[in-house]
């Protein structure tokens, strides 16, 4: 150090634990809840639009204990999750192989591309009435609707990730004796898996968003149906309770997927 030079105090990058940020989130949620509580308590807003947190809690407790319109709360949740998971399972077993093959083989992609590109931007509700016409008003049409709304994002993720498998990795596998379907099963699919699970997160989001629409027609169960049914009777407490239930379930599913991604691809920097 030259004579007389002053060493500046070095600014250290602060590293904080996750707990710090979780704390901030907790405080901000608490603040909003408090605001809600104050606003509804003092009737700043018509209670029809904004019930008090207590009302919502009682509505929830009531549904949890007594059920809603003939089914218990777990039965409603199960009905919705069943539709979603059946749809997701079908999406995964079709969109992934098809997308991967389309990503690797141009002429096969040329067959499917026009259809996917055409229906992808359509709002699911636009073709829902057709699906009801074809598949009836039972669960089948709902599952098909969820399937169609969630298929495209995963399909596209599969196409892109299979196209992006590093050339060296692909060539290297061939030089180790892999060929034909074994390249797909042992090299391309695992290469794509992290991207596929990320795509699955998008797909889950979209199917979930379509759920309420799916349960609009001829349903007697499901969380989405609960919201719609309660709105007919202006039971905003139940609407709020149902929405919060839906939100929490969504967060749980997404967290599970995130953990799964971390688990199957620990080498991917997140």
């Amino acid at each position: 150090m030259p004579v007389g030079a002053q060493r500046k105090p070095r600014k250290r990058k602060k590293t904080r634990g996750n707990a710090f940020y979780l704390g901030i989130s907790a405080v901000s949620v608490g603040a909003v809840l408090t605001l809600w509580w104050i606003a509804s308590r003092n009737a700043w807003v018509n209670p029809l639009f904004l019930p008090t947190p207590a009302d919502v809690w009682y509505a929830f407790a009531d549904i949890a204990k007594e059920g809603y319109k003939g089914s218990s709360l777990p039965a409603h949740i199960a009905a919705s999750l069943r539709r979603i998971f059946i749809a997701l399972a079908f999406i995964f077993v079709t969109a992934v192989p098809l997308g991967i093959i389309c990503g690797r083989i141009r002429w096969i992609q040329a067959i499917f591309d026009p259809f996917v590109e055409f229906y992808r931007p359509l709002p699911p509700l636009a073709y829902y009435s057709l699906l009801v016409l074809w598949f009836g008003i039972q669960d089948t049409s709902k599952i098909v609707l969820l399937f169609l709304s969630g298929f495209a994002p995963l399909f596209i993720a599969a196409v892109h990730s299979s196209r992006r498998v590093p050339v060296d990795r692909f060539n290297g596998a061939k030089s180790l004796g892999a060929k034909g379907w074994r390249l797909y099963v042992y090299v391309i699919f695992p290469s794509c898996l992290p991207d596929l699970l990320t795509g699955l997160r998008t797909t889950v989001g979209i199917t979930y968003a379509t759920l309420v629409a799916a349960e609009m027609i001829a349903a007697v169960s499901g969380v989405g149906w609960m919201v719609l049914d309660a709105s007919k009777y202006l039971r905003s407490d139940i609407i709020y309770a149902a929405i919060i239930i839906m939100g929490v379930i969504a967060i749980l599913i997404d967290t599970a997927l995130r953990l799964l991604i971390k688990r199957v691809s620990p080498w991917v920097e997140s």
Binding site: D168, N171, G172, K174, K179, V187, P190, S265, W267
Partner: peptide, 19 residues
Amino acid sequence: IEPNAQVGVVFQHANLFPW
């Protein structure tokens, strides 16, 4: 003619299967 296990290749970057 085609890559196979008769000709082994070691790349500049190890190119292992990360999974």
